[in-house]
Amino acid sequence: MSWLPPPLPAPRQPGRYAVALVCLGNICRSPIADVVLSERVDEAGLAGHVTVASSGTGGWHVGDPMDPRAASVLLAHDYDPSLHRARQFAASWLEEHDLVLCMDARNLEDVTSVRGEDSAPDERLRLFGDFDPVTHGAEVPDPYYGGPEGFEEVLAMVERTCATIVSGLQRIPGLTGRS
């Protein structure tokens, strides 16, 4: 049996869809995913309907551009990292976004704790790797303390996973002109 990605949750607002990407400091993994997913959404003709944002669970880098190594790998692959400024995840993002994708289990735990321990499981809160067609459910490794090869690995994971996410977005009625 072939792998099928989990279905995307329904939009909260017809004709609109908001995706949030979350990592630890919002300078490596989630900004790479934000840049790639935003470009893929635009290429698919969904930019008028789908918004993408990223944040970190920690506030150390708020207002900073992405890590120079993350920006470098994006530039080397013809992406534009220049607009990114780090933000910190806030509880309001859980209500403002249709899908919140965390880069690793710790990020997911941190976001879940913001939501509250007693909250029921939410289909809108998932691991980014749940949509990875190669390593289903894998965590996106944090390349911060490594070399350039770690950033290349993250980009490869992000590109293939974003393709799966965009494919799911294209199947949501009202986002592509279909009903």
Rank of each mutant, 00 (worst) to 15 (best):
S92L: 12
A91T: 14
T176R: 12
G146M: 03
G168V: 07
L101M: 07
V22A: 10
F128H: 04
G59K: 07
V154Y: 03
P11D: 02
I27E: 07
P133F: 07
V19D: 00
L4S: 15
A76G: 12
A18W: 05
G63T: 01
L21W: 06
T135P: 02
H49Q: 13
G129M: 03
E159M: 11
R178I: 10
I165V: 15
G137C: 02
V19R: 00
A70I: 10
M66R: 14
R85G: 04
M1S: 14
P121N: 04
T135Q: 13
F89K: 09
A53W: 10
S2Q: 15
R126A: 04
R124F: 03
R16P: 03
H136V: 05
V158Q: 00
D98M: 05
Q170I: 03
G15I: 11
V100N: 09
A53I: 11
N107Y: 05
W60I: 03
R29Y: 11
R12N: 07
G45P: 07
P65C: 09
G25Y: 08
V100I: 15
F131R: 09
T161Y: 09
G58P: 01
Y17T: 05
L125P: 00
G63W: 04
C28S: 11
N107F: 01
R178E: 15
E152G: 02
P121F: 08
G58Q: 14
P81L: 14
R87I: 05
G15H: 02
E123Y: 00
P9M: 03
L8F: 01
V100Y: 02
V35H: 09
P173H: 08
I165H: 10
C162K: 06
R16G: 07
A105K: 13
P121C: 06
R115C: 06
D64E: 15
V114P: 01
P143R: 03
S119M: 14
P141F: 06
D98L: 04
D118E: 15
A10T: 09
S82L: 10
W60P: 01
F131M: 02
C23D: 11
G146F: 06
D110M: 12
D98W: 06
E139K: 01
C102P: 04
T161G: 03
V134R: 14
A53P: 02
P31W: 06
L108P: 04
A163M: 07
D34F: 10
M66G: 12
D67V: 07
D34I: 11
A91P: 08
E43P: 02
L101E: 01
G59H: 08
A90M: 15
D80H: 06
A47Y: 06
G129Y: 04
V36N: 06
L94M: 09
E95N: 13
W3V: 09
A86K: 05
D34C: 13
G146Y: 11
S92Q: 14
A163G: 12
S113W: 08
E123I: 00
R29M: 10
I172W: 00
G137L: 03
G177Y: 05
P68M: 10
